[in-house]
Amino acid sequence: MWLAGATIADVAIKPRSRPPLTRLFAGKPAASLLPVLPRLFSLCSVAHQVAYLSAMEAAQGREPAPARLRSRITAVIGERLTELLRGLFVGRAALDGTSAAAVRAVMQASALLGGVDEAAPEALHCEAIAQIRTALGALGISSEAAAFEPGSALAASVAGCSGKLVAQPVVEPSFLTLADDIEIVARLLADGAAYSDAPDLCGRIPETGVWARSARRKEMSSSSGDPAARLKARIAEIGQLCAWLDHGATDLEEGVVASYRLGAGKGAAAVECARGRLYHAVALDGEGRIVNFEFLAPTEWNFHAHGPLVRNLKGATLAAGRQGQDAVRALVGSFDPCVGFSLGFREAGHA
Rank of each mutant, 00 (worst) to 15 (best):
M1Q: 10
M1W: 01
A6N: 12
A12S: 14
R18Q: 13
G27E: 09
A31M: 12
S32G: 11
L34Q: 12
P38E: 14
A55N: 02
A59W: 09
A59F: 06
Q60Y: 10
G61C: 11
E63M: 12
A65S: 13
R68C: 10
I77G: 02
T82N: 03
R86I: 00
G97Y: 12
A102Y: 01
V103F: 04
M107G: 08
Q108V: 14
A111N: 11
G114R: 10
D117L: 11
E122T: 13
A123E: 15
H125M: 13
A130Y: 00
Q131H: 03
I132Q: 01
A135V: 03
A135H: 03
A135K: 03
L139Y: 05
S142Q: 10
A145K: 14
P150S: 08
P150D: 12
A156P: 03
G160M: 07
C161V: 11
C161K: 02
C161Q: 02
E172N: 08
T177G: 04
E183F: 07
I184D: 07
R187F: 04
A193L: 13
A193P: 01
S196E: 12
L201S: 08
C202I: 14
V210H: 00
W211P: 00
A212T: 08
A212G: 14
R216F: 00
R216D: 07
R217T: 12
S223L: 09
S224F: 04
L231Q: 06
A233T: 05
A236T: 12
I238Q: 06
D246I: 07
G248R: 10
D251K: 14
V257C: 13
V257E: 06
Y260E: 02
L262S: 05
A264C: 05
G265H: 04
K266V: 05
K266Q: 14
G267L: 09
A268Q: 08
G276P: 00
G276I: 06
Y279P: 01
A281L: 09
A281E: 08
V282Y: 01
G286A: 01
E287C: 11
N292W: 05
F295T: 14
A305P: 05
H306I: 03
N312P: 00
L313R: 09
G315P: 15
T317N: 09
G321N: 13
R322H: 11
R322S: 14
V328D: 05
R329C: 08
V332L: 04
G333K: 06
C338A: 10
L343Y: 01
L343D: 08
L343E: 03
E347D: 15
